[in-house]
Design a protein around this nucleic acid. Structure first.
Lengths: 193, 193
DNA sequence: TTCGCGCTGTACTATTCGGTACAAATTTCT
DNA sequence: AGAAATTTGTACCGAATAGTACAGCGCGAA
């Protein structure tokens, strides 16, 4: 693992690389994104990339972390310790889906691409765990606030919601519609309210 | 589009190529599977592949069709016009998931890899539609047999089941467990029975 | 047998890809 | 200012990749 940049300029370069790689890998896949394209899109050079990353796999790990941040940024109800409204989260999810023009999930799109790489697979699984825990926190608050059935299991429900989100985003992406995602989430919510 | 093989020998060669490509692409991704690996795994030569396919994209389309066949083969209740048992389908799905060692969905694994290729995307969307229609047929039979709520909408329910299957398979693959898939499908089933 | 067509093996090419080497430039700190 | 560390430009390399050219093989029909 290479050290983080020591200067502000270095940080800007590193971030530009990660963001460009994230965009390209989201659209074209990991294997479908050459390093050179990342350099062009980020306006950097090869020496900079290999100065901050050990190689493509290391860069990809940084992209995965960056993508979870993007996802959680688009779902502020998960980070708001006062929010107990699952509908608000639902709307945030659908809004982000619409804003992405029904594109793939920033994180889920990589699930089918890390099959043969145990390192990436492990990292991705950990990030999904974080995401699920964040959802479980919101469900826990909703239970405490009496907004759902009292015997609702937060962890199990969070898993079901995340599953619905992933499947719904994938199907919605394929047919260019928000309906699969809305349908899937609403069905899960109907089982606890 | 190249013509189909005219002899039994040619058909065997073509099938060997598609099956080898399907296995490799499922494990390593489309972009991560070189043509040469397909040739080695199938025991064929480059001249045969380019004799039956226009190129990698054409081969990939054939792989997608082959994968839907594999999926429907593993879910015989969808093709059985007498089956009205959604639990049987549920068990078939979970059994296949377990048999695959919680690996990715044979078809869903490609959803995140066809982003920049409109041809592959369109083909994959059509195959998912076929899958959904097959599930909708089973749900329709279950409604007619009075095994679920009479006001169940088969198409909408089929979409929800397919969504749960995709999300559940993805999450189950990441954490090596059948729990996400079982949880997701059972939750949808609980909304109609 | 021999002809013809479909099938297959081998060799080759042009390009792309991930990664390296190394010097030059820039920033930071004293 | 000047040394030290950090950041960046450029040129390069070996391996891998998709696709092509073309000759030879094998089986069925006349």
């Amino acid at each position: 693992m290479k050290p983080m940049p020591a200067t502000a300029k270095g940080r800007r370069s590193r971030i530009a690389i990660v963001e460009a790689a994230a965009g390209l890998m989201h659209d074209q896949g990991i294997a479908g994104t050459p390093i050179d394209d990342v350099l062009t899109a980020s306006g950097t050079g090869k020496s900079q990339l290999y100065h901050y990353f050990d190689g493509k796999q290391d860069l990809t790990v940084a992209v995965l972390y960056h993508q979870l941040d993007r996802v959680l940024d688009s779902q502020p109800s998960l980070r708001d310790p006062d929010c107990t409204d699952l509908r608000r989260w639902r709307d945030e999810v659908l809004h982000a889906h619409h804003r992405n023009h029904f594109g793939n999930c920033p994180l889920g799109v990589f699930a089918g691409q890390v099959g043969d790489d145990p390192v990436l697979r492990q990292e991705l699984a950990g990030l999904f765990d974080q995401w699920q825990q964040a959802i479980a926190g919101l469900v826990t608050r909703a239970v405490a606030a009496g907004r759902v059935h009292p015997d609702t299991d937060p962890v199990s429900t969070a898993l079901a919601l995340l599953t619905a989100l992933q499947g719904g985003t994938m199907l919605g992406c394929l047919r260019g519609s928000e309906h699969p995602l809305a349908e899937a989430i609403d069905r899960v919510l109907s089982t606890i309210s």
